[in-house]
Structure formats: structure tokens, C-alpha cells
Amino acid sequence: MSGELRLGLNLGYWQRNADDATEVVQTAERLGYDSVWTAEAYGSDAFTPLAWYGARTSRIKLGTSVVQMSARSPVATAMTAMTLDHLTGGRLLLGVGASGPQVVEGWYGQPFPKPLARTREYVDIMRKVWRREEPVTNDGPHYPLPYPGGAGLGKPLKLITHPLRPDIPVYLGAEGPKNVALAAEITDGWLPLFVFPEKIESMYGPSLAGARPGFDIAAMVLVMITDDVRAALDGVKMMLTLYIGGMGAKARNFHADIVARMGFADAAHKIQELYLAGRKDEAFHAIPDELADGISLVGPAGRVRERLELWRDSPVTTLLVMGPRDEPTLRTIRDLVLG
């Protein structure tokens, strides 16, 4: 049980039409939010918006949720992270993730197999870069340094710039039990997308057993303060329809898999089947209210306050709220979570 919860704001992807959330981030900082997070898929990148917001704030931590490993080599990510961490006074929280085969192979043109081994190698190389103990080499099969072959002139190198922090916190976006266990073993935190707080112990207890002291479970949760619970649940279900139904291949959808492990296997199969058949409205109605309610915090403030106790009784240590952008709602959530 975590008891005390930290509070962060997850902005998701930067979108077109000049989606500048500077005022939102400044408001969150002023209200005492601990962190703000951005994301990337196959649109905007995660680092650039954070640099923009970091230049306009002074205290709030800056997180990536998540940087896709296949988009950059380990040393490229390490260099970008070091630079942003330096420029913002040591505020970066570096979330990385393997993404899925559709994006990795279809967008980045990189192989997806063996994501666990690739992740381990990737994180190890980044930490070698930041420590600057010696020129960076790697004998692993996924990111060999120097490159074997080519011109034959590759030389081990050491980062020119001394990092502000040689131990930049690394988080891992993970959904499967083995990937969560890897996060607990080699990183400083885990970024779960869907969390059913009453079930996290039964789903991931063994995976989290090896976590180091201070390991941060920073769970993303959709929050809506409203008197219309029905409309709020429908909003959650709209998001779930896309993720369960269409975010992944029919035979390889990690979001559908996690919903199945929550105890909704039949529903997940039906939702995906309907969605891929083009029957999206039926897929929406196939999502159980219990699932939508379990992974979110929606309704009047009193209802959200009661449901927050489930999160306080879980291993979650940070709530990364998604959805709210206006100051009154951000203030209400701050008061409910931080008391």
C-alpha cells in the first residue's frame, strides 16, 4: 500500500492547431502538481513539448510517457535526455517503452522481436553514457557498439558534455507481467496505462516483488469531475473502444490482453471482433461499465474522493491524471488527492 500519493498531469500527445499547454502546465505547477508528462506515437515527439514547457516553468518535473525506443538509438535518447535535464535544472523523468509491432515495424522500420532483451540493453547503454566512466561499448546483439562491420573504423566514445545528473530517473511503460518485472528490476519506475487498483496486486504482485526501494508506480488515470456519471463513463468507454478494438493487430493487441487479465477476457474478445468488423458502435456498447469505472476516477467530487481510497490502498505511488485542463478542475483534483 502506498497511502500517500504524488500527483502528476499527463498531457498526452501534442496535437496540431498550436496545442500550447503552457498555461495549463504553469497552473499545475502553481497548484503543487509534482510532474507533467507528454507522449509520442506516430505524430508529435515527446521531448520537444517538454523543452517548451520546461523553459516556462521552474519546479515541476518533466516526464516522457513514453519515448519509443525504436525511434532513436540508445545513445541518441541518452544525449537528448541529458541535454533536456541540464537545461531544466535536473527535472527530467525519462519514460521509455517498446511500443507495439505495428508501430515499430510499420512506422520506424525496425524489428519488434525480443522487446525485453532490447529494453534491457537500451537502458544499460543510456546509463553507461550518463556515467561517463569509460568510452561506451556494448556487446549485445541489438545495439552493438562500436558497430561490427561497415567501414570498420568505429571507435568507442565518451559523452562530451558532463551530465547534470549521471542517474537520470528511467521509467518503463509496460503492460505484460514479464515487462513489468523488468521495470522493477532495472528502472526507477513503472508507467502503466490501465490500472484497476483492486486487481493490481493479483495481476502484478510477483512481477513487482523485486522492485528497489522508492520504485515509483506512476499510473495514468482518466479523471472527470462531473455530476453526470453516465456521460463520464461513456467518455472512458470511447477511449477503451479504440485501445481494445484497434490499437494493435488482431493477434497482438497488448491493451486487449491486459483487459483480459483484469477478468474481462470475453468482453475484450467481443470488443475487438466488433471493432475490426467496422461495428464500432456495438464495440462501444460491449464495454462493461465495471471496467470503465474501475480504471478511471469519474463523477462528483464526493464519489471521486471515495474511489481514491482504492488507489491509496494499492501499490500505486503517483497518479498521472488525464483529461482536465481548466484551473477549477485541476484545483479540485489537487485538493482531493493531496488533501
Rank of each mutant, 00 (worst) to 15 (best):
G3N: 12
E4I: 09
L9D: 03
L9R: 05
N10T: 07
G12C: 07
Q15Y: 11
R16A: 09
N17T: 05
T22I: 07
T22S: 13
E23K: 11
Q26H: 09
A28R: 00
A28P: 01
G32N: 09
Y33V: 05
A39F: 10
G43C: 05
S44L: 07
P49N: 08
R56V: 08
R59D: 12
I60G: 01
T64H: 09
S65G: 15
V66R: 02
V66Q: 02
V67I: 11
A71M: 11
R72Y: 13
V75R: 05
T80Y: 05
T80Q: 09
T80K: 03
T83L: 10
T88Y: 11
L93E: 09
L94Y: 07
G95A: 06
V96W: 07
G97C: 07
G100H: 15
G100Y: 13
G106S: 04
W107P: 01
W107K: 05
Y108C: 04
Q110E: 10
A117R: 15
R118F: 12
T119V: 12
R120G: 03
E121Q: 10
M126D: 02
M126L: 12
R132Y: 04
R132N: 05
E133Q: 11
T137Y: 08
G140T: 15
G140L: 12
G140F: 11
H142I: 10
P146Q: 07
P146G: 04
G150S: 05
G150N: 06
G152T: 09
G154W: 05
P156Y: 10
L157Q: 04
L159V: 08
L159P: 01
P169W: 04
V170G: 02
P177E: 01
P177M: 03
N179F: 08
L182G: 02
T187E: 06
L191K: 03
P192G: 02
P192Y: 06
L193P: 01
F194K: 03
V195R: 04
F196H: 14
E198H: 02
I200Y: 01
G205T: 03
G205L: 07
P206W: 04
S207R: 00
G214P: 00
A218S: 13
V221H: 01
I225T: 02
V236P: 02
M238D: 12
L240S: 06
T241A: 15
I244E: 08
G246M: 13
G248H: 11
A249L: 15
A251E: 15
A251F: 14
D257A: 15
R261E: 09
G263D: 05
A265T: 10
K270F: 04
K270L: 12
I271C: 02
I271H: 01
Q272T: 07
F284A: 00
H285S: 08
P288A: 00
E290G: 01
D293V: 04
D293H: 09
G294I: 03
G294P: 03
G294F: 02
S296D: 02
S296E: 01
L297S: 03
L297V: 13
G299W: 00
V304H: 06
R305A: 08
E309N: 07
P315V: 15
P315D: 12
P315E: 11
L319M: 14
L320H: 13
R325Q: 14
E327A: 14
T329Y: 04
R331K: 15
T332Q: 14
D335W: 08
G339H: 13
G339L: 11
G339I: 06
